[in-house]
Simulated scan of single mutants.
Amino acid sequence: MTAATPASQSPAAPAAAGRREFPFEKRHFEFIARMLHQLAGIALAPHKVEMVYSRLARRLRELNLADFDAYCALLESEDGGNEIGFLVNALTTNLTSFFRESHHFDYLAKTVVPDIRARHGGESSHPRLRLWSAGCSSGQEPYTIAMVLAAAFGPELRRWDAKILATDIDTHMIDTARRGVYPAEVAASIPGPLRDRFTRRLREDGEAKIVVEEDLKRLITFKPLNLLEHWPMKGPFDAIFCRNVLIYFDRAGRTQVIENFARLLEPGGCLFLGHSESLYGVSNRFRQTGPTIYRRLP
């Protein structure tokens, strides 16, 4: 996830109804903002009123709803839970790519993997390895993690009990990620040897696509999860990627999530954040070891 593009108009500004397909009043914005915060922990700044309108107007057309009163009523209804995923997806930009912020994956391969080998490699015939992609969007991040692990460990990975958990609040993104099928052009960011090894080309609906190989998919479990609700996993994790997710939470939400990450990470385990995120003033459970890379303190 990455930040949605802000707009300049506030909810108190004139509605400019003549230019709008649907009337959109301050009470609509405040209701949607309140519900999004209550159910997903996402804080909508007041200046994002035009962004909210433009993205949800498309949703009203898809649902054949007459106005925002009807949409707010849907969110409050028994079927509203099914709409929350669409709401989150509409109001956040699921911008992701393979090997995005590549310095994180260099650090994973050159520093984290050797540390894991040193700590756990001699423990048993099947030493345990756990990583988590929290806010995995359409799946490129966990597949990138899997490629890095498979390349760094080589054939040795077969003797490890290695699993990657990938979660997102949006069930539609989880479905996309689980399929592992993407437009062919997104493969350009994958290093050639890894692209040749872990993906194959196909045509789907007349378009060139790539699909992730099954051996890589088997390393990953995709699950829907709201980071501000109960976490069923027990850990511990060797590393957690949570990039461009915390920017959507208020301070209390960020603190809650980071404290839970600290609880589930191994001492010395790594937390990777997005390029505009920081733990400054949020937690003293970590030390920074690189750009948006943190280690959990003992």
Rank of each mutant, 00 (worst) to 15 (best):
R251P: 13
A262I: 10
L194S: 00
Y182V: 08
T292Y: 00
L273E: 00
P127F: 12
W231L: 09
G81Y: 08
Y53R: 01
A152D: 06
A57G: 06
A43K: 10
R20Q: 07
L271C: 05
G253W: 02
L194K: 03
T221P: 01
L202P: 04
L108R: 01
G85T: 06
L228N: 11
G268H: 03
A166K: 01
C136H: 05
R263G: 10
K234N: 13
T92I: 07
D115I: 00
S77G: 14
D205R: 14
G154W: 00
V113G: 06
E25W: 08
K217H: 11
K26A: 14
G122Y: 11
R295V: 02
A252P: 01
G85F: 08
G206R: 05
C270M: 11
E25Y: 10
R117C: 09
L157C: 06
T144P: 09
R27K: 15
A166D: 08
T255D: 10
L74E: 12
I145W: 01
H120W: 11
A118Y: 02
S278V: 11
G80L: 07
R243W: 04
V49W: 01
R58E: 08
R158V: 14
R243C: 09
S133M: 07
I220Q: 03
S283I: 07
F22Q: 11
Y294G: 04
F86V: 15
L165Q: 08
V52C: 00
A262E: 02
V282H: 14
A262N: 05
A150F: 02
P155K: 13
L36C: 10
E83Y: 07
K234H: 12
G121A: 07
G139K: 00
Q288L: 11
V211K: 04
W160Q: 03
G41T: 03
W231Q: 06
L279E: 04
N284G: 15
L202F: 11
R58C: 01
E21W: 13
R100H: 06
A33H: 10
L149Q: 01
H275G: 05
M51E: 04
W231S: 09
E266L: 15
P291E: 13
S125Q: 13
L219W: 13
T92E: 06
A66F: 07
F286I: 02
R27W: 12
A12E: 15
P236K: 10
R27A: 14
T171D: 10
E204I: 07
A239L: 09
E101T: 03
D196G: 09
L131Q: 00
F99M: 10
P232N: 05
M51T: 15
M1R: 03
G135W: 06
K110V: 05
D106R: 13
R159M: 09
N244W: 04
V186Y: 02
V113I: 09
L219G: 01
P142H: 06
D115W: 09
L75R: 12
C136R: 04
E21T: 14
C136G: 03
P183A: 06
H120N: 13
L279R: 12
